[in-house]
Write a protein that binds this DNA or RNA. Structure first.
Lengths: 284, 284
DNA sequence: CCCTACCGATACCCTGTAGGTATGGATGCC
DNA sequence: GGCATCCATACCTACAGGGTATCGGTAGGG
């Protein structure tokens, strides 16, 4: 039993996600028949049925469901291998850090100067990406470090260091019935409409999708939604909205994450500088 | 830039480990010239120099060193994908647990009956493997769960649940100068010879390598070595050796580990049963 | 100092396989 | 029942991956 080829995994992922050989083949830029044969050969070599096909529909078997998840992990690991080696081969070493907009709660401007003091410091490039994208970029090796948020982000596969714990505040329109309160409980907000953030589970979606903080503030000011967000967002509150602490909302943490078993001195130095900068940071 | 093929990674690993194209080719079962070309093509595609070759010697560049480690992770992930899917496709679901000999500190005989009570229980197969092999078997999907030991084993990439904390005891020949003591400090053993266990870092090796507990006891009884081991080993002490607690040795934990993001009900039930069995276990 | 043994790279050939086109056969729908 | 849809099969082609022979550079022994 020799190892599966990357190409076979890519092909399977395409079919498993499209549940349609024709569309999958198109997405892969090949014709449908070779794809059908490739999947057949894959199943024969693995001695497992991954897909149930009729001439009308394709569906995943339990083994196929497991295999799809495992393929994603494995393919991420392969591209991470490539990217990390390429990065290590650069003559000018560089550190890339991923964050989402406002995802640093103002910490980065304290971390960067502190890091530059370190003898192991190298150039830092901050990659501002879409919300929820940071962990993917860290997983597949496009960046060396990421600023993530617990409990929102999936931290499996990373080493992490907590930088900051943020209490939650409700953002309300100035005229909202609860705007005059000094503190709230989650139960007070039961009847409200909440926005959906990109990367959220779309199942529990109720309100409109929100892309950035400006848009959020706009919707809040109009009274369309109410948002429960980390207190660091206070810095972006407009004059026509108010922020009220929500005492029983689970607090979120800003944390720095990097791939497990990383031995880079530059990464270690950045982590060191970050924890120190966070420890001396003023209350937000 | 399309993805690297598994075969290329396997080829590179062979060369990087042998540091010799001829031997690597032999190990791979192919001729040397195609291997040379494959590595060249790999380097060209990655646009990174991975190996420094002269006509007399081959050595790894920094990028090559990183890539070797990443290749291991990636290849493990690929074979894990295959194995886990195969396992999920079995009509008779089964749980495989890896442990090294005596690695359960007597816990397993309490865990298994407790697990069988669980509604989600399936057949359990215990794989007794070489010391240090458990984490590898868990990483590449040959088993679903493993009994590991902190801080000895590398836990990165796993979710874990601590089952038991074990204090350390020194095993001494009955006639040893310290045999009459009721407790020791590590400093008392400074001048002693310690055995080397399989999977240990061979750098700090001083004494002879030891394969199993019987052999260890033999060497101790002969006065050749002194061992500091978890107290659970007491159960295997022969009459011509004595065990003395070492108060300042870092205590080791027995813990149950499984791959991150596992969603199997059977695994969850086994973890549940294990923690409960461990909580009600008698002192060793 | 030169000859030889060693080792990776190159040149050249061949075969297996990935991919393409055409078409068959099953199934649901109007 | 005719048709559209969709996966599988049949058959062909091209190229990538593998083999053999050999080159070119380097270290070491006599």
């Amino acid at each position: 039993m020799d190892a599966l080829e990357t190409r076979e995994l890519v092909y399977f992922v395409a079919v498993a996600e499209e549940l349609h050989f024709g569309r999958a083949a198109e997405r892969l830029g090949i014709a449908q028949p070779p794809l059908s044969r490739a999947i057949q050969r894959l199943e024969r070599r693995m001695e497992v049925t991954l897909l149930e096909r009729t001439s009308r529909a394709v569906s995943l078997t339990p083994a196929g469901t497991v295999f799809l998840a495992e393929c994603h992990k494995a393919l991420d690991a392969v591209t991470a291998a490539q990217r990390r080696a390429q990065r290590a081969g650069q003559d000018v070493p560089r550190l890339k850090v991923a964050m989402k907009p406002e995802g640093d709660a103002g910490l980065l401007e304290r971390i960067l100067p502190a890091y530059r003091q370190d003898p192991d410091a190298v150039d830092v490039h901050v990659e501002v990406c879409g919300a929820g994208e940071q962990s993917r970029m860290l997983r597949d090796g496009r960046v060396d470090l990421a600023l993530l948020h617990a409990p929102h982000d999936d931290l499996t596969g990373f080493d992490t260091e907590a930088l900051l714990t943020l209490n939650q505040v409700a953002v309300l329109a100035r005229g909202h019935r609860l705007a005059e309160h000094t503190a709230l409980a989650l139960a007070d907000l039961d009847s409200e409409t909440f926005p959906r953030f990109p990367g959220d589970d779309p199942v529990q979606a109720t309100g409109p999708e929100v892309r950035d903080i400006g848009q959020l503030m706009q919707l809040v000011a109009l009274g369309r939604v109410v948002a429960v967000v980390p207190e660091s967002v206070r810095r972006h509150a407009r004059s026509d909205v108010v922020c009220v602490p929500v005492l029983d909302a689970p607090s979120s943490s800003v944390l720095l994450a990097w791939p497990e078993r990383t031995h880079s001195r530059a990464v270690a130095a950045f982590v060191r500088a970050s924890t120190e900068a966070a420890a001396t940071a003023p209350a937000v």
